[in-house]
């Protein structure tokens, strides 16, 4: 598995790469904020339940929504630091040029899948907004959660296109 650790990652050069990198980091931090808020809310609910017999109403629903939002916002950063797993066993002895071609294709496929999911999510968002679908207890509209998810998948696609571009540059070498 070509799994780089985040600290080994070299920040991209060039204005485009830097802008994308910044956006991915921004989304990751946004996800981190949602995750941290979720943890604090759960702790507050447990304390409320144990000490005062008053849990936070709808805490389970908020955790579900928060989970979906935070993990999706983590996806683009993971691609920017080449964190998504590949199996490199079969190609261990291939020349770098072949690897660059394969990795370019793989990144393009990832981008295609990410844009497909983003497109469908955007349609899903519109439908849920129209139908008034909401959570059971707090009646939080479900489509709220889709609002950060759609740009996250778009950004994942852009990050994958960028890595495809970087890989393609290695092909002639």
């Amino acid at each position: 598995m070509g799994e780089a650790l985040a600290h080994e990652h070299v920040r991209p050069a060039g204005p485009l790469g830097r802008a994308l990198d910044l956006a991915c980091r921004g989304f990751a931090l946004g996800g981190g904020l949602v995750l941290s808020a979720m943890a604090l809310m759960s702790v507050a609910s447990i304390v409320g339940r144990a000490a005062f017999g008053k849990p936070i109403t709808g805490d389970f629903e908020l955790v579900q929504m928060g989970c979906a939002i935070s993990v999706t916002m983590f996806l683009p950063f993971c691609q920017m630091v080449r964190g998504h797993i590949i199996v490199d066993f079969f190609t261990a002895r291939m020349p770098p040029r072949v690897l660059a071609i394969l990795d370019t294709a793989a990144s393009v496929l990832l981008a295609a899948v990410a844009f497909l999911v983003a497109w469908r999510l955007a349609i899903g968002l519109q439908e849920l907004r129209g139908s008034g679908d909401s959570s059971m207890i707090l009646r939080v509209p479900t489509w709220y959660a889709y609002v950060p998810m759609v740009p996250s998948f778009v950004l994942l696609g852009l990050a994958a296109l960028y890595t495809a571009f970087v890989n393609a540059l290695k092909v002639p070498a």
Binding site: G32, A39, C67, A68, F74, L121, G124, T142
Partner: peptide, 23 residues
């Protein structure tokens, strides 16, 4: 199916322990 697959997969109460334990 893809309209709601990501939200359906990611908005699972028990799954939220994964990012929490990683953090």
């Amino acid at each position: 199916y893809l309209k709601n697959a990501a939200y359906g997969r990611y908005s699972v109460y028990d799954l939220s322990v994964v990012p929490l334990f990683l953090l």
